[in-house]
Design a protein around this nucleic acid. Sequence first.
DNA 1: CACCCACCATGAATCGATTCACCCCGTTCA
DNA 2: TGAACGGGGTGAATCGATTCATGGTGGGTG
Lengths: 350, 350
Amino acid sequence: MEPAGSGRNGAVESMVGIKDVARQAGVSVGTVSNVINRPDLVSEETRTRVQSVISKLGYIRSESARQLRAGASRIVALLVLDMGNPFFVDVAKGAERAARQAGLGVMVCNSAQSTSEEVEYLSLFAEQRVRGVLVTPADPTGHSLDGLRRQRIPYVLVDRVSADAAACSVSVDDVAGGRLAAHHLIAAGHTSLVYVGGPRDLPQVRDRRAGALAALEEAGLPAEALTEISAERLDVSAGRDAGARLLGLAPRPTAVFCANDLLALGVLQAVFAARISVPEQMAIVGYDDIEFAAAAAVPLTSVRQPAVAMGRLAAEMLMEETSGDAEGHEHRQVVLQPELVVRGSSLTPH
Amino acid sequence: MEPAGSGRNGAVESMVGIKDVARQAGVSVGTVSNVINRPDLVSEETRTRVQSVISKLGYIRSESARQLRAGASRIVALLVLDMGNPFFVDVAKGAERAARQAGLGVMVCNSAQSTSEEVEYLSLFAEQRVRGVLVTPADPTGHSLDGLRRQRIPYVLVDRVSADAAACSVSVDDVAGGRLAAHHLIAAGHTSLVYVGGPRDLPQVRDRRAGALAALEEAGLPAEALTEISAERLDVSAGRDAGARLLGLAPRPTAVFCANDLLALGVLQAVFAARISVPEQMAIVGYDDIEFAAAAAVPLTSVRQPAVAMGRLAAEMLMEETSGDAEGHEHRQVVLQPELVVRGSSLTPH
DNA sequence: CACCCACCATGAATCGATTCACCCCGTTCA
DNA sequence: TGAACGGGGTGAATCGATTCATGGTGGGTG
């Protein structure tokens, strides 16, 4: 029964299409399509017959063809700043779960904080006609997103608020987070802090610093009580460098707040190498509460961000925007609250 | 015919296609296509005219349409076991760089060691008609890949050798790595080791253990000198649990070799919590040399795997397989060598 | 008996880009 | 002068699935 209609597929056997299924099942292609997409329109008998042919031939429908017709794909893109940061891995997990529940695929990409990579990826997404984009922009000007807007590709900002409300956004209140961290250190008796920040043009870095300043002010301490060290990047090795600079300060700081956990781990390492004990001689607080923060030899006090929830929410908001009629959509700015997780690296001294 | 030139697109302005460009530029669609794909076939004058229209209208070609025609997409998929493991992030980086250099996109997905997730993703890839797949299989039986083979989708195994040589593979010699680690500990004077492994059906876990056994034998030590503790998963929290069990052993072990760095960090944490000093009272060696290994408070001795190179090689081999004529392709099994990186966690005691 | 409806299935139009056979026209060469 | 040539361009066929207007059939109703 194999060389069904004719033997012409014997040579390459290339790819079985909907036509092959239709021929084998003795129905029209339209009917096969209905079996797949609206089974209730097809009689029981035809349906089972077609379906058995489908599985016998191993038919797999072509996404490109249906996309072409439908106009948009079933993929949402997620563009993050740093795949090496477990924080973004969590965001990706949340987004992925939500999207897949809705039958969409997620394409995770890494701009590595480079504006040019970002632009390249965004145009790739446009060519793919992705359903939408979840993005933590690298470009501080925000102009890299203009293309999306022109192409009418919906997008949701992740871990950033939309300045002009031109899109939905999900973010965490970084000022509150900075305040939590600094307040904790102040309450432990420290009267001056070092803030290990990163590139100034990152809103996260700025806001967390602003929060720390606010906490100082609330405690009646002067702004000069905050010393800032700027790391080149937000990763561990930059943290080590920052740690070295930190140790050069006189008098030696007793409390350090880092813009993220990668930096904090680097600082911790430098401090350890100098045989300074944590938290007795120096308290350290990080940000993000990545898994490795708890796993550090001196578990790191950190400001937890609801990363998974952020990813999930972002995906849900995107799907809300794409499914409902585009006109009736109101952009929303969701701001989540961070939470302090106290661990060994900042326990009250003495 | 149509109200062709009319303003009927004024309402939605939907999406500018190649036809719009052709009309505006006063040429045929075929010519526009040539301008984009084979510019040398078009006269200078026409080319610049068309190109200016393209940028004026903001035309972006539809990948689905060209895919449909071409039969295969310009995307390769990468399916890893655990996005939370920085090792795989590095693999992804390597693969991504290589693929993008060849003008291909990479879709990174995470099976989270679940066979069902893996199967689901693989069928998603088949629908997308991806150019090829790079995969570290979760399914120990390897049957989840049968679908790919049936669909004639080329794939390359990553961090695993292909048992039946049905595909290319890039892996690291895990036996050699295990031997390196154990030999190092033995040379430091330890006469018995604990191996903290993971799920037994993972070849990586088995091979590293085998390597350790080989090292013991070479040193004239009995196989009983190796005690094994099996963690549930290969992550930090499983490492903590394993660490607790480790501390329950009597006499207390002096040397521990972990199947990967996540486990080692967990063990390290448990050991620290018990106020046992590393490496003086207990030496620890991990595997993978992830960035956080060096950043641990007691920097972790680890077996470095060329993760980035592995990703790059895998992508290159895949592209080699897809570009050349399929018939002339010989599957290759590339095995890279690991390297021991000695740090504080295993320095010779006393 | 004529009419209408419900139910199934059909087949052609469509999505947007690529590709290829073919045409036009000016040059060159025998 | 006519043939051969070739650069530059055209337009229709094509990829595979979806969708919708249309057709056919059988049953129920006025």
